[in-house]
Design a protein around this nucleic acid. Structure first.
Length: 821
RNA sequence: GCCGAAGUGGUGAAAUUGGUAAACACAGCGGACUCAAAAUCCGCCGAUGGCAACAUCUUGAGGGUUCGAGUCCCUCCUUCGGCACCA
């Protein structure tokens, strides 16, 4: 019957239509069921889905469908990270308003989503460019402003000339803009910041809650980024008696200080009058931090002529200005111990400064004269006054105690994390709800006036500047406190603000408030899925933002994402698919050629989800073949479907074994999905089952017992396939007589007793080498196994005449005879 | 430099608690069907030696622990990722 060809095109269209016409994927709060929230990082509507998206969303869809079939109340929403620079660039190049460009892209990508058959509840769709969404960005901004968590300050900031905007630290990679890879420069500008540093400790502590559900490497990256260190702030003094505090993590080396260094932009230097020093400072300040601190840049400095007194020794040491000292970290000034810090060592050698040894290596005593590099290891303190002769770790504590007691030192914790710069000199983003009044200063927009709407009818006139600043109708306003003429802030928020809370909004997308109590039903996200590239960007910001929302009493949970799966990249010809390399494969073309089910199956089969996936069209064909094999098998035997029950003991050995295979397959597939998140092996298990059915004699399957077994197999295999290849699974379900959506069928159960193999193969080893094998009933005892091994002719030949030292029996696996001589 | 992950057939990869290395698939080879091809179905497929039974070797390299190591420990090499003058 030609009708029973595997026509994926028709089948996929048919089921996509049926799903859309029904409300199968719609989710409601239901307190009788356990909730499960699966979320994939929502996409930027760039225009087209790429393979990375397909992989991400296929994994999420599998999890969502699986948990639904397992009986959970599953939330699986989708939306759009709709603000961002590409829309503006398109506007500048093609004179299309960013709103139109973005909306068109959303519509197109939504069609692509439909073609892939993902089980989203579209009634919860969110787009961050909607005023009813970004209103709450503004509202939270105001709350944060009131609490001092959002503030404006003048600071040297990262500037991307290409994007014509500032960037947060997290958005500079290797001195380049994360989006366009242009060289980032430094500018001193008044900008808006979120005080993420106030949450440094919470962000670190929160890891305890995440360590079971998040990949270790993401936590490590975040930990390094936060960069907590323990040290001592020591107050050195100038000859004038003025304080000169420095931060060090090595107080045990304080007796080895031979000079001090200060950052060029330190305000302390303003009173310097020496023209040479002033010239040096000016030169350093002209370079950007990135230039100044470039990898191969040599350390440079100049003696200020000022002397600094070490409170431990009373010694006076010179103060240098140095290009390598960072104003933002610690106090912007450091003590230098060339003997025990290789950077200080290099600097001391360059400028002929003394080197004083204060920690000796007990294994290889150090001679200062012949030192080639600093000794940074542990050892015994020397030349350290009353602290000499101690292990340096102990000296560290004693010195800190002493300094605190004497009042010139304090134990200090430092973080490398810096505040999140959130203002952008761009148009296509959420307006910052701030008004500047010449009389009243900075005020927030009153809540009743929210949202501050971003005008969408704009003209770029080919300029790369934000059109907002020159739009008088937007800029000019009245001051909420004095009623006089005032101006609006024209910077917009970093789009990472938009994506820092969207996951919570999905719980109650239609709420008139930011959230309603449904947010606490669905949150936290039980399974979050996305790329590793967001380890210290989105995933850190979102955790911070959620903590702020928690502290504002808006969300109960402290951590938004319980489990995180970071999927690997899609690779072709050894490199990530990218336009510039010309190795992109268009998902639409592959869907057209093989169908969405095949693409999805390949995405899950080719590699475990967290590893990179090598694109191979041959591999895709293999997946297509597997679907065809299942299809033909079901079509061939569909007329055998029966309601008669199975008397397991009456089955032939082949059918018994086939049935056992089915139950083992269900067991393995269930475990692979729910516990191991290893979908490639789950698929392999199903392939094995299908292979075994093909190997079965037709007549055996057509026998009355065979009919009952094949019915059971189909009724359990097809639901399993549903989470991988939902369209063809629904169609096959219908072919074997299913009346309702397969999606709403329960996940198949397995019978533990049937899953146990009746006969197993065990191995016999001598001294750990396999010498023989035997097929035995799985019920065999240890004693019987041992006896079988010793009776085995091959083992007997080897063991004969030798002394048996030990016999090891591993039940169900092996016997190992250990002999001597 | 520091931190992290990885290294297994011709290829993508399996091996779940220290217990039969290479499941499943791709490619290749052979066969069936066909006038033929495609599709499909079946078989073989780590290396060396052997007609074969079988033997020996094999998880980046070298050591170690163990009756037994891809898996644990030490040293080293390579690749990838993150951070990088943070005092």
């Amino acid at each position: 019957m030609a009708d029973f060809e595997y026509n994926f095109n028709e089948i996929e269209k048919k089921w996509q239509r049926r799903w859309a016409e029904s409300d199968v994927f719609k989710t409601k709060r239901d307190l009788r069921k356990q909730k499960y929230y699966v979320l994939e990082m929502f996409p930027y509507p760039s225009g087209r889905l790429h393979m990375g998206h397909v992989r991400n969303y296929t994994i999420g869809d599998l999890m969502a469908r699986f948990m639904h079939m397992k009986g959970y109340n599953v939330l699986h929403p989708m939306g759009w990270d709709a603000f961002g620079l590409p829309a503006e660039n398109a506007a500048i190049q093609h004179n299309i308003p960013p709103y139109t460009w973005t909306t068109d892209n959303i519509n197109h990508m939504k069609c692509q989503f439909a073609k892939l058959g993902f089980s989203y509840d579209w009634s919860r769709e969110i787009a961050t460019y909607a005023p009813e969404y970004y209103k709450w960005n503004q509202w939270v901004f105001i709350k944060m402003f009131e609490k001092g968590l959002a503030y404006r300050k003048k600071a040297p900031v990262n500037w991307c000339p290409q994007c014509a905007t500032v960037l947060a630290n997290e958005q500079v990679e290797d001195g380049q803009c994360w989006r366009c890879s242009s060289e980032v420069t430094q500018k001193e500008l008044d900008q808006w910041f979120f005080k993420i540093t106030a949450y440094a400790e919470d962000l670190l502590q929160g890891h305890d809650m995440l360590k079971d559900g998040w990949p270790e490497r993401v936590l490590v990256m975040q930990r390094n980024w936060i960069g907590k260190s323990y040290g001592l702030t020591i107050n050195f003094k100038l000859e004038s008696g003025e304080d000169f505090p420095i931060y060090t993590t090595r107080p045990d080396t304080v007796f080895g200080v031979t000079y001090m260094v200060i950052a060029p932009e330190h305000p302390f230097l303003e009173k310097i009058s020496d023209p040479k020093v002033k010239e040096f400072i000016a030169r350093m300040k002209k370079q950007s931090l990135i230039e100044r601190l470039a990898e191969d840049k040599e350390k440079e400095g100049i003696d200020t002529g000022i002397k600094v007194i070490n409170p431990f020794t009373g010694e006076k040491v010179p103060l240098f200005v140095g290009n390598f000292v960072l104003m933002e970290y610690g106090t912007g000034m450091i003590m230098s111990v060339p003997a025990h810090d290789s950077r200080d060592f290099a600097f001391a050698k360059k400028y002929g400064l003394p080197i004083k040894l204060v920690i000796d290596d007990p294994a290889h005593p150090i001679d200062v004269e012949s030192m080639k590099d600093a000794y940074e290891g542990d050892g015994i303190t020397v030349n350290s006054g009353q602290f000499s002769g101690l292990p340096n770790r102990e000296a560290m504590e004693r010195i800190a105690d002493f300094a605190e007691k004497q009042g010139f030192g304090k134990r200090t914790v430092n973080y490398r994390l810096k505040d999140w710069l959130i203002s952008r000199q761009r148009y296509w983003g959420c307006p910052i709800p701030i008004i500047y009044c010449d009389r009243c200063g900075i005020t927030t927009v009153p809540e009743k006036d929210l949202p501050v709407i971003l005008p969408i009818d704009v003209d770029f006139k080919g300029s790369s500047q934000s059109p907002l600043a020159s739009m008088e109708s937007f800029v000019s306003t009245t001051c909420p406190s004095c009623g006089g003429k005032a101006r609006r802030e024209t910077d917009t928020m970093d789009t990472f603000v938009d994506s820092s809370w969207y996951f919570a909004k999905f719980a109650c997308p239609h709420s008139k408030d930011m959230f309603d109590d449904e947010v606490n039903y669905w949150m936290p996200v039980d399974q979050y899925i996305g790329g590793i590239e967001h380890a210290v960007l989105h995933l850190l910001y979102a955790r911070f933002f959620n903590m702020v929302l928690h502290d504002l009493g808006l969300i109960k949970v402290k951590e938004p994402f319980t489990r995180l799966l970071t999927q690997g990249m899609v690779i072709k010809d050894g490199a990530k698919m990218s336009k510039s390399l010309g190795n992109v494969v268009d998902p639409d073309k592959i869907i057209e050629k093989y169908g969405a089910d095949t693409v999805r199956l390949f995405m899950l089969f080719a590699s475990p989800p967290d590893k990179d996936l090598d694109w191979s069209e041959k591999g895709v064909e293999g997946c297509f073949r597997f679907i065809g094999r299942v299809w033909r098998m079901v079509v061939k035997y569909r007329h055998l479907m029966t309601t008669s029950s199975i008397d397991h003991e009456a089955l032939s050995p082949t059918l018994k074994s086939l049935r056992g295979k089915l139950h083992r397959t269900i067991q393995a597939v269930t475990k692979d999905i729910s516990e191991r998140q290893q979908f490639n092996t789950a698929i392999a298990r199903m392939m094995e089952l299908v292979n075994e059915i093909y190997q079965c004699d037709e007549r055996e399957i057509e026998s009355p017992e065979g009919q009952a077994v094949i019915t059971e197999i189909f009724k359990k295999l097809i639901p399993m396939l549903n989470v991988f290849t939902p369209h063809v699974a629904e169609e096959l379900w219908e072919i074997i007589g299913g009346k309702e959506f397969l999606h709403n069928q329960p996940w198949p159960e397995f019978d533990e007793a049937l899953a146990v193999k009746e006969e197993i193969e065990i191995v016999f080893q001598v001294n750990g080498k396999i010498r023989s094998k035997a097929h035995v009933p799985s019920s065999i005892t240890k004693e019987e196994m041992e006896k079988l091994a010793l009776d085995d002719p091959k083992i007997r030949t080897i063991v004969q005449g030798k002394e048996i030292v030990k016999k090891i029996v591993v039940p169900g696996k092996l016997v190992n005879i250990v002999i001597k001589g």
